[in-house]
Computed example of a mutant assay.
Amino acid sequence: MTVLDSLLDAARAAQARAHAPYSRFRVGSAILDEAGAVHAGCNVENAAYPVGTCAEAGAIAAMVAAGGRRIAAILVLGDGDALVTPCGACRQRIREFAAPDTPVHVAGPGGLRRSFTLDELLPASFGPDNLA
């Protein structure tokens, strides 16, 4: 099994557990950390819409809670015909823990659809190094 297969399996399992009673749009995400561990998250909606949590945020929180500090790769899985890339806020969340060349994989029900680098999704970004 490849790393990409492991990320896709973890994201699928998380997506199946998403709490999306309002949009009915389930998203799963999985992160490979610097030690090779995989951490997953799903979207969790809330009746007060701005209070919900994206799948990527959940995966990042799981990584940090488990002791991971760097994102080596991330995969986002969503349904539908369009690419389900991280929202702007999640791109910034990913930036906190990832390098510009970190792969961001986007998948759908049939598997991998496209891969980007973080820098392609969030060019000229503001991050921790700006505060050094």
Rank of each mutant, 00 (worst) to 15 (best):
R17F: 06
G67M: 10
A37C: 01
A99P: 02
D33R: 03
T53A: 07
R113A: 14
R114I: 13
R26S: 15
S29N: 10
A73N: 10
R70N: 01
I71L: 06
G127F: 06
S6F: 05
M63F: 07
R17H: 12
A66S: 11
D33Y: 03
A16L: 09
L32T: 01
V76H: 09
S6V: 10
G67C: 13
V106T: 13
A73W: 02
A10T: 02
A16S: 07
G36M: 00
A124K: 13
V104A: 11
Q15P: 09
L8K: 09
I60D: 00
D9M: 07
H105K: 00
A55T: 06
V64A: 09
A59D: 06
S125E: 05
Y22G: 08
L75N: 10
A20R: 03
V38C: 01
A35V: 05
V38E: 02
F25V: 11
F25A: 14
S23L: 02
F25Q: 15
C87N: 04
Q15G: 04
Q15I: 05
M1F: 01
L112K: 02
G127C: 09
L112N: 14
V38T: 00
D101K: 15
V104N: 13
G110D: 12
A18V: 11
F116I: 12
F25G: 01
L122G: 00
T117G: 05
D101N: 11
S29G: 12
G88T: 03
V51I: 13
P86K: 14
A61C: 04
R114K: 14
A20Q: 09
A30V: 07
A61Y: 00
N43K: 10
A14K: 04
L4P: 06
A40L: 12
A10G: 01
D5W: 03
D5I: 05
A66E: 11
A48R: 06
S29Y: 04
I60Q: 03
R91Y: 00
G58V: 13
V106W: 04
V76S: 12
G108M: 12
I74N: 12
A73I: 07
S115A: 14
N130T: 13
G78Q: 02
N43G: 08
S115R: 09
P21L: 05
L118P: 08
G111S: 11
A47L: 06
A65W: 08
E34T: 04
A61H: 07
A40F: 06
A35P: 00
F116T: 13
E120F: 05
G127A: 12
T102H: 09
P86L: 09
D101T: 15
A82E: 06
G110H: 13
L4W: 10
I71H: 01
P100R: 11
A57L: 03
A61P: 05
M1H: 03
P123S: 02
R91F: 01
A57M: 15
I60K: 09
